[in-house]
Write a protein that binds this DNA or RNA. Structure first.
Length: 532
RNA sequence: GCCCCCGUAGCUCAGCGGAUAGAGCAGCCGCCUUCUAAGCGGUAGGCCGCAGGUUCGAUUCCUGCCGGGGGCGCCA
């Protein structure tokens, strides 16, 4: 084997062949080396295989076979002992199984949902809530310290409109055109305490503002309760008004001004976003002096970084795509690394019933609430639905279908496998059988060998999810593992007093599978029931 | 006009440089005297939008086109 120039050495890529006949692992290294070495790929692969078999690279405890295949693949078969060691390790330390070395140990702030408290969360907010929380779980799995943050506007015209709507409904007057309608407004109107109602009509009190402030606090409580049903909990609830009151906005604008990227024109104050590649410059203070939403965003960035975060993530709907550049540009202008201002855009969700899109509008009151969705399909099923699809793609959510299929939903299939194992373990305990700590020889059985190979993949599935900041791989893996277990259940009798040693080993494998399923589900925030 | 995303099985979606393209649901045919049938087996179903290009190799990367969605406010 000729020595390789370091620069010419390609990265070693190892993958899992789709076809089990090709072994457990395969590498295209020989094909990558063909050009720099100017040798046929098959010849190189053969040399590598020889080295692994009984040469300097041989490791009989890990690699049981090394074979060369057609274009130049090097296919490896992992030793049974290596898989058996995995099972033993899972049983010895279940909590540690699936934990991976920290990928990026940093303090990260993840802001998501952030719907204004002018009405209950709708199904439109559901994806943001699930995806945001899923992202946080994945980041945590990668060793990051995550703060879940909810940003909301608790003052201003929208809140005034809410207050005016509540007042109108309470007085049985028509709701203003720009007001809010819907059952929740009627509920709010009924619940206004007498002292609040009286205060709202004090001379000079500002009826809409007073009622709006009260109503938005009530709505925020409703939102928090809905999120709790999803299993989503925020660490920080940040009000936009507080950013202004505490001076974050003005200070940030002055900081920008000092860099020369702020100018006055037409009576307004602008940020020179085009200096960083944006289409146009952006207004910070309107000509009447009122700050734009962008102004608050600028102040918020400085406020977040002042709390010591290394990295900020914003989970937004695609409709906010146009605001990404200005915000990142402003962060950069203020001296922050733009790579630490990350925006994740969530694809649109079309909620359809019988193939027809359901339009949603808080103002028109024609929306399906998040609670309606949960009543229909359940938190685990809804969470699974979003976890199994890429964040950025647009998706259809057929509510009727989800409701109808709920018992056929893949999430129940996976949970069922977990519950089934739990049942077996209970039965085994009654029969006086316990999982064997030592499973040497376990792989002799075909059903066992097939199952272990899937169980053993958990760490890399977790790592892939962390690197991609996506969870579809986890749902796919959980489904595959459940399928493999069901096959094992069919082919291998676990509880069998006639062969106690084999039974104990199979119990160990079943338990390892249960732990693995639970880990995958936990990463997704989905429950792993002991019985169904 | 400019920018972003998508186009894979009847439907909803994975796969995103490798060796026969996958899952769930829907369809059809079977399987409960045995550890949970929310299960299992079998079967059927695809010019991976179209056309070029890069590569030993493209559903995967690049370009163009066609089709769908979204964004381009001193709104949020």
């Amino acid at each position: 084997m000729p020595a390789l120039e370091a620069a010419a050495a390609p990265a070693v890529e190892v993958e899992r062949p789709a076809n089990p006949a090709f072994g457990d692992l395969a590498t295209n290294l020989a094909m990558k080396l063909a050009r720099p070495l100017r040798r046929p790929p098959l010849e190189i692969a053969e040399a590598l295989a020889a080295s692994l078999r009984d040469g300097p690279a041989s490791a009989p405890d890990l690699v049981a076979a090394a074979e060369v295949a057609r274009p130049g693949f090097l296919n490896l078969r992992v030793a049974d002992a290596a898989y058996e060691a995995v099972v033993a390790r899972i049983l010895a330390d279940p909590a540690g199984w699936g934990r991976i070395p920290a990928v990026n140990p940093r303090r990260v702030n993840v802001e998501f949902v952030s719907a204004n408290p002018t009405g209950p969360l709708t199904v439109g907010n559901a994806r943001g809530a699930f995806v945001g929380d899923l992202l946080c779980r994945v980041l945590e799995a990668g060793g990051q310290a995550v703060t879940r943050e909810y940003y909301f506007n608790d003052s201003g015209t929208q809140i005034d409109h809410l207050g005016a709507s509540v007042a109108a409904v309470r007085r049985r007057e028509p709701v203003p055109d720009d007001g809010y309608k819907g059952a929740y407004v009627e509920q709010l109107a009924r619940e206004v305490p007498d002292d609040v109602w009286a205060a709202a009509f004090e001379p000079g009190a500002g009826t809409s503002a007073v009622l709006g402030a009260w109503a938005s606090r009530r709505v925020r409580g409703m939102i928090e309760a809905s999120l709790a049903r999803l299993g989503v909990h925020f660490d920080v609830w940040k009000s936009e008004a507080s950013l202004h009151e505490e001076g974050w906005v003005d200070r940030a604008v002055e900081r920008l001004r000092a860099t020369g990227t702020v100018y006055e024109q037409d009576g307004a104050t602008w940020f020179r976003s085009t200096a960083y590649g944006d289409d146009k410059d952006r207004v910070i203070y309107r000509s009447d002096g009122r700050p734009t939403y962008f102004a608050a965003d600028i102040g918020y960035v400085t406020e977040k970084f002042s709390r010591g975060f290394d990295h900020l993530i914003y989970v937004w709907g695609v409709d906010h795509h146009g605001t990404v550049a200005r915000n990142r540009n402003a962060a950069q202008a203020m001296g922050y690394d733009p790579d630490h201002y990350q925006v994740i855009l969530i694809g649109w969700v079309r909620f359809v019933v019988d193939g027809v899109e359901v339009s949603m509008s808080k103002r028109a009151g024609t929306f399906v609430t998040l609670d309606d969705l949960l009543d229909a399909v359940g938190a685990d099923a809804a969470r699974w639905f979003f976890a199994s699809r890429a964040t950025h793609v647009e998706i259809d959510f057929d509510i009727e279908l989800a409701r109808k299929q709920s018992s056929e939903n893949p999430v129940y299939y996976v949970q069922y496998a977990h519950a089934r194992i739990a049942s077996i373990l209970r039965k085994a305990a009654e029969a006086g059988l316990a999982p064997a700590p030592d499973v040497a020889g376990l792989l002799a059985g075909e059903p066992e060998a097939a199952l272990v190979r899937v169980v053993a993949r958990l760490p890399e599935v977790v790592e892939d999810a962390v690197l991609a900041e996506e969870t579809q791989g986890v749902t796919a893996y959980a489904t595959e593992l459940a399928t493999q277990f069901h096959a094992f259940y069919r082919d291998a009798r676990v509880i069998d007093a006639a062969t106690p040693e084999r039974s104990a080993q199979r119990l160990a494998l079943a338990l390892a599978t249960k732990v693995t399923l639970a880990k995958a589900l936990a990463l997704l925030g989905i429950s792993a029931p002991e019985s169904m």
